[in-house]
């Protein structure tokens, strides 16, 4: 026998991931072209995406605030290798750039696509702004990418 016996299968499991109340609010905000954050007045912390638990005191984040769709790029990468996207089961289109962006007035970073495809044109500390799709549906894809302001 040329190759030892093996059993092959490509199971496909379907999920309905609940966005939760805070996430639902965030996605609705994106649909309106707005970036919403949750705020803990005690700590104080303002975080995107909004969520129920503060990252400092782990208590309830009571307040939802809108933050400007601009921020600072704190890290980035150009993804250049092929791999299967678990959502589609086929190869994710490459190359693409994404980065960690700290929105103005927030304390954490948000991970999302960058419009720039050449990492040599990006730098840590760069100012960026969120670009929204014209047609929006209240989903993450309403946010197209971040583009450099300088």
């Amino acid at each position: 026998m040329s190759e030892p016996i093996a059993v092959r299968a490509t199971p496909e499991l379907h999920f309905r991931y609940a966005a939760g109340r805070y996430g639902s609010l965030f996605l609705r905000g994106l649909g309106e072209g707005r970036i919403l954050a949750s705020r803990c007045a005690r700590c104080p912390r303002t975080l995107v995406p909004p969520r129920v638990a503060c990252t400092h005191c782990f208590g309830k984040m009571e307040e939802i605030v809108e933050v400007p769709p601009r921020g600072t790029l704190l890290a980035f990468t150009l993804v250049a290798f092929p791999f299967l996207d678990p959502f589609t089961g086929v190869q994710r289109p490459i190359p693409y750039c994404y980065g960690m962006v700290q929105f103005e007035g927030t304390d954490n970073t948000f991970q999302y696509f960058l419009s720039e495809k050449d990492p040599s044109k990006l730098r840590v500390g760069q100012r960026v702004e969120a670009v929204f799709n014209e047609v929006r549906k209240g989903e993450l894809g309403d946010l197209l990418h971040f583009r450099a302001l300088e």
Partner: peptide
């Protein structure tokens, strides 16, 4: 919802650290 669309596994997660 937020992270899977961009992430390329451990490789890109660590690339952010390396950056």
């Amino acid at each position: 919802i937020y992270e899977r669309p961009t992430l390329a596994g451990a490789v890109s997660g660590l690339a952010i650290l390396a950056c």
